[in-house]
Write a protein that binds this DNA or RNA. Structure first.
Length: 455
RNA sequence: GUGGUCGUAGCUCAGCAGGUUAGAGCGCCAGAUUGUGGCUCUGGAGGUCGCCGGUUCGAAUCCGGUCUUCCACCCCA
């Protein structure tokens, strides 16, 4: 019989207890802040109907969706043409009705529409769950990863954008990560496309703009030209490349640039308003207005936000923005929302890189009882019950193996105290307590032991 | 999805112009110490050299494929 080799699908990972304790530290920090801002938790299924997911993330996004093969005889759905001249895209649509969720925002929009009668608007929810993308794995890029989302739907107020940025600031200062928060507005990008008379090429332009820091202005210009955007239009963008200096200076230049675009000016106005609210709030993280920040997701319509770690190449740690009509595709118009999403796995990698995890995060068993045999073990069980009731994390070694082995186990697990209760201690009604750090050992009564460990 | 890269003991890695029984450190197990971990000493176990196929008298070493890792592009948390 051939043995199966233990392995995992590409891009997925197990988490060891050590890692889970650290991951939970991140989740707890984030959850606590979400709750403090009055957000309510929800969960949605790992799989959604494929129709819910398709078309929401752009062409690239559709490619990265994991599709689930239908149960039963899924081949029935195919006709002769499919067999003769197979087209993977159309075939997959016929044999897959469901897919794994790609993010938490679209399922949330679906949730809102479906539960509209039960939800008090504006609805503030948070959601921490894994998502799946069929991307090629790299550092900071996994096929299964956790997102931590907060969204407000049913409110146009820019106060929501302000709160999102506050939450970002609190989360990252809470975790001790130094970040830069980048802010832009889709309306500004749309205005730019308008001003250079290339509105219909908005996506190409934003994708190009997004690459400026990475490949440089000249290469971006080349790319735009190669995509068929006229040289005259590309040249008109020059003021955007040259943006320098303070936020106010950038906005001033952009106002002149966008003067002819109503949409663009609206974007500027919104951005200024958010910044005005933020000003007296004194953020810890650096806030930047970045006119080249694009964000790929198609559904953003207003503010767009991205957070990157300082002094480390790690993509974005958090991203989000305003989407005016996500629920519209599910038949519920006029419902605007803003939301952000924290990438827990990237946050973990950054914290690991900078050694930002506190030691106290590892809180496990404090006292181990050595097992001397059935009679002694039964006696220890009774002591354990009282010790646990006193709130002390304690356990009994399950097998009556050599003391040395049991001591080694305690040592390897970092358990600070060991209790030895053999025949002699049972007779005396005492417990021999050994402090593993100092090596000191003394005989104590149960109450003395409890008060010792409580310190 | 395109291009490249890595893969030897549980871990980190050495070995490789093809040639007897594939090594080290750490870890693990046992003993020195039959009611005591960490330190020390002694001994031991553990490898289809990612997987499949090819070239060769002979392959960990060369070639092809495949899977995995990491990287660039694309895109993104």
């Amino acid at each position: 019989m051939s043995k199966e080799k233990a392995s995992l699908p590409k891009g997925t990972r197990d988490f060891t207890p050590d890692q889970m304790i650290r991951r939970n530290y991140i989740f707890h920090t984030i959850t606590e802040i979400f709750q403090r801002y009055g957000f309510l938790p929800i969960e949605t299924p790992a799989m959604e109907n494929l129709s819910t997911l398709l078309g929401k993330y752009g062409e690239e996004g559709d490619r990265l969706l994991y599709k689930i093969l239908n149960s039963g005889d899924f081949l029935k759905a195919l006709d002769k043409a499919d067999w003769k001249d197979p087209d993977p895209a159309s075939i997959s649509m016929k044999i897959c009705d469901r897919g794994l969720r790609y993010d938490l925002t679209v399922p949330f929009a679906r949730f809102v529409v479906q539960h509209r009668s039960e939800i008090p608007f504006p609805f503030r929810r948070y959601q921490i769950q894994p998502v799946w993308r069929a991307d090629k794995p790299q550092r900071g890029r996994y096929r299964e990863f956790y997102q931590c989302d907060v969204d407000v739907v049913g409110s146009d107020s820019l106060l929501n954008e302000v709160e999102m940025i506050q939450i970002i600031d609190e989360v990252f200062t809470g975790l001790g990560i130094s970040v830069t928060v980048k802010l832009n507005n889709r309306k500004i990008l749309a205005g730019m496309a308008e001003v250079i008379e290339q509105s219909e090429r908005l996506t190409d332009i934003t994708v190009g703009l997004d690459k400026v820091q990475k490949i440089g202005v000249e290469n971006v210009k080349k790319e735009l030209l190669s995509k068929g955007i006229p040289a005259a239009s590309v040249e008109k963008l020059n003021p955007v490349w040259d943006l320098r200096g303070s936020i106010d200076m950038k906005l001033k230049t952009m106002k002149e640039f966008l003067a002819g675009s109503e949409t663009g000016m609206q974007g500027i106005k919104e951005t200024e308003e958010v910044l005005d609210f933020l000003k007296p709030l004194e953020m810890v993280s650096r806030l930047e207005v970045d006119m080249t920040l694009a964000r790929g997701l198609d559904y953003y319509t207003g503010a767009i936000i991205e957070v990157v770690a300082d002094d480390m190449e790690m993509g974005s740690l958090c991203g989000g923005g305003r989407y005016d009509n996500l629920t519209g595709v599910f038949g519920m118009e006029g419902m605007s929302g803003v939301g952000i999403s924290f990438g827990a796995d990237r946050i973990y990698d950054v914290m690991e890189h900078f050694s930002l995890f506190p030691d106290e995060a590892v809180h496990s068993t404090r006292l181990l009882f050595i097992n001397f045999g059935a009679r002694e073990a039964a006696y220890c069980l009774d002591l354990l019950k009282k010790i646990r009731r006193a709130g002390i994390q304690a356990e009994l070694y399950p097998d009556a193996v050599k003391i040395k082995k049991q001591m080694t186990y305690a040592h390897n697990r970092g358990i600070p105290f060991v209790a030895l209760v053999g025949e002699e201690e049972m007779k005396e009604g005492a417990v021999a307590l050994k402090n593993m750090a100092t090596g000191d050992q003394s005989k104590l009564s149960l109450t003395a032991l409890i008060s010792e460990l409580r310190r």
